[in-house]
Design a protein around this nucleic acid. Structure first.
Lengths: 98, 98
DNA sequence: CGCGTTCGCTACACATTCCGTAGCAAAGGA
DNA sequence: TCCTTTGCTACGGAATGTGTAGCGAACGCG
């Protein structure tokens, strides 16, 4: 399978593509404070359907931001850096939304 | 219509929801260097279908990050701050993706 | 061991979303 | 006038996401 969207293959395009799918950003967000089990993630993410969650976890693992470990799913070191950006997103949201 | 996803109404959830739709992040990315017309955005975004683009622009305008002006669509000041985070995302991508 | 619970995950049918194409009315140029 | 380009909508089909049920494996407990 090729990357959906841009055909340039530029890294940023691949990232925008994967993160622009439902639950991607949310999963990253929920993992920001440590690992969660599959079931735990489901609970954290408004009971997302297991099929969708599994698909998203597959995508995120392929991107190298999430990995499956002893106590469930966790961010990789790269993923933790990405999560820092999400923290900025959260601050932005608190300041500008509603 | 209410916010899809989280029922808490927390700002960050609303943002994760809107940005987690296809083309949202990409549109923000393509507007980072200045305004683009509807057609210009379409060209920049791999010829996204006009229906999808229009839907996304509606979402992003509702979120307050994009506005329609004289020379097409542009980021609001809040949107420009958001775009800065995307720049960090781009740097992250160059460093960690393939 | 046996029994129940929880785990990660899959199957499958249904619903929503997205897409591609066509095309409209309005604005501009020649 | 006629041709082009604009922003945008309509609509049917394709892709994606959803909800429910349930599997086999691993656990706790007696």
């Amino acid at each position: 399978m090729s990357v959906r969207g841009s055909k340039t293959g530029r890294p940023v395009m691949r990232v925008l593509d994967v993160l622009g799918r439902r639950w991607s950003l949310r999963v990253l967000w929920e993992l920001r404070d440590g690992p969660l089990t599959f079931r735990g993630l489901r609970d954290a993410c408004d009971d997302v359907s297991p099929s969708s969650l599994n698909q998203r976890l597959t995508d995120l693992r392929a991107l190298g931001v999430v990995e499956a470990g002893e106590d469930g799913y966790a961010l990789t070191s790269a993923g933790r850096e990405l999560a820092k950006l999400l923290l900025g997103l959260s601050r932005w949201a608190e300041a500008h939304v509603r």
